[in-house]
Design a protein around this nucleic acid. Structure first.
Length: 418
RNA sequence: GUGGUUGUAGUAGAUAGGUAUUACACCUGAUUGUGGAUCAGGGGCAUUGGGUUCGAAUCCCAACUACCACCCCA
């Protein structure tokens, strides 16, 4: 019987794990540079937590739902923001404001896997709560830009497209649109880039708009100038002060699917359009905490997945080359030297050097080959003749140069040469 | 959930019905105290399950995977 991985899941062999750790380290470093603290929550939540605000599609179609033995409906987390909101609401008064938190949880969504999209993935979330002004939104965008730069992306390789849902609302009002049509209209607006113009027009006319209105809407959505709409003006002023205005652009067609967003919404895109989808997404959610029983507390956050980031880096040829690193590999000439080899290895480890010890009595040839394949900087060869003088051979596996070193000085000397 | 493409050793990549090829990797060896070269030798593979056929990697069906387009999204 051959058992494979569950559809849409991944094994992280050490090679892959090295990349994942590298990625997470970058995400943590940048988050912490801005004063964000890491948190985590449970893998399972009550389904009700998502029922209210996450959006029908996400909850009904994409969430893994299971029943506990006690008959309660549980959900495997399909996103992290509701957990964050629940945690914040539960201890709202004792938490220092503003709340700056980040997390990298694994998230599950029942979707058709394809490139850049799995069923289990890790999702970096950065959130700031307790700030009403656009200062918070600007900070989140700044963290986002810095993360992408830290991952090695350069200007022109990504763009943060920003909109404000209230701007869009006013726009629709100015066109005298029936507000009951809004969800349908938003949906089409969100997809405008992917749809052919004819299809876009046809869809909207089907939703009840007349041709003249559709044309006006199209023109308005092409507008890259938000005029005197204050929240966006405030935001842009800050973005300029951060020095990141060159990485962002205003795009009135950004909507986002989650119901809880209010005000600012933004997405990171690949300007070359190699990805026909957002790489990151986020926005402001001013009502979510009250929806979960807390006092009013505004929030802004962004999320992205390890899968899309990896795909993005790969497409751009920016995947880091991460070799396994090991300081020393200790080999011995014959079984008689093994006790000393063990002592030598312990000594190196006590000195803080990562050290692998050969555990077999294979020929020196084989052991050196193993040392070479281990990725170690040095092979330490414990052999009888040198041992009589209290010395071991140290071979630099890159330069192939060999030196003789007194056992007591080994750790110190190696540290100096790494 | 819908439609399409796909699946050959660890990896890459031939094979258009007749005992599966090659490269790299791997293992063994080349007078026994030194790894990456060279040489010689070696093991391992047609996703799975059915069907057609004297005979299937090859044709047909199904399942599964990955990928692509919808859908949606990170």
């Amino acid at each position: 019987m051959k058992i494979e991985t569950v559809k849409g899941t991944r094994d992280f062999y050490p090679d892959k794990m090295r990349f994942r750790n590298w990625l997470f380290d970058k995400l943590r470093q940048v988050s912490e540079l801005y004063g964000y603290e890491e948190f985590d929550g449970p893998f399972l939540e009550y389904l009700d937590l998502y029922a209210a605000k996450s959006g029908e599609e996400l909850v009904n179609e994409q969430t893994y739902i299971l029943e506990s033995r006690g008959g309660e409906k549980l959900a495997i987390r399909p996103e992290m923001t509701p957990t964050l909101a629940r945690m914040v609401a539960a201890k709202q008064n004792e938490l220092r404001k503003p709340i700056r938190w980040f997390t990298i949880p694994n998230i599950w969504r029942y979707e058709q896997p394809q490139r850049g999209r799995k069923r289990e993935f890790y999702q970096w979330n950065v959130d700031i709560l307790g700030v009403e002004s656009m200062d918070a939104d600007a900070e989140v965008v700044a963290v986002t830009v810095d993360v992408l730069k830290a991952l090695g992306l350069e200007k022109g390789e990504f763009v943060v497209r920003i909109n404000n849902r209230y701007y869009l609302e006013e726009l629709l009002k100015s066109l005298n649109l029936d507000l009951s049509l809004e969800p349908a209209i938003y949906r089409e607006i969100d997809r405008i880039e992917k749809l052919k113009p004819e299809v876009f027009r046809a869809n909207l006319e089907q939703a009840g708009l007349d041709t003249a209105t559709v044309e006006k809407l199209e023109t308005a959505l092409r507008n890259r100038n938000f005029g005197d709409f204050k929240p966006l003006r405030d935001l842009w002023e800050r973005l300029e002060q951060y020095g990141i205005a060159e990485y962002v652009e205003f795009d009135p067609s950004i909507v986002r699917g989650l119901l809880y967003y209010t005000g600012t919404v933004f997405e990171v895109w690949d300007p070359t359009k190699r990805f026909r989808r957002a790489i990151m997404g986020g926005g402001r959610y001013d009502n979510l905490i009250t929806a979960l029983g807390g006092q009013p507390l505004p929030g802004v956050g962004i999320a992205c997945s390890d899968v899309t980031l990896e795909e993005m880096l790969e497409q751009l040829g920016r995947l880091p080359k991460l070799a396994r690193t090991l300081d020393a590999f200790v080999v011995h000439y014959s079984p008689a030297e093994r006790p000393t080899a063990i002592k030598v290895a312990s000594q190196l480890r006590n000195g803080g050097l990562t050290t692998e010890l050969s555990l077999s009595d294979l020929s020196l040839d084989k052991q050196l080959k193993a040392a070479s394949n281990s990725g170690a900087h040095f092979a330490i060869i414990v052999a009888p003749a040198e041992l009589e003088r209290g010395e071991v051979n140290v071979k630099n596996l890159q330069t192939r140069q060999q030196q003789t070193v007194r056992v007591e000085e080994l750790a110190t000397i190696l540290k100096g040469q790494l």
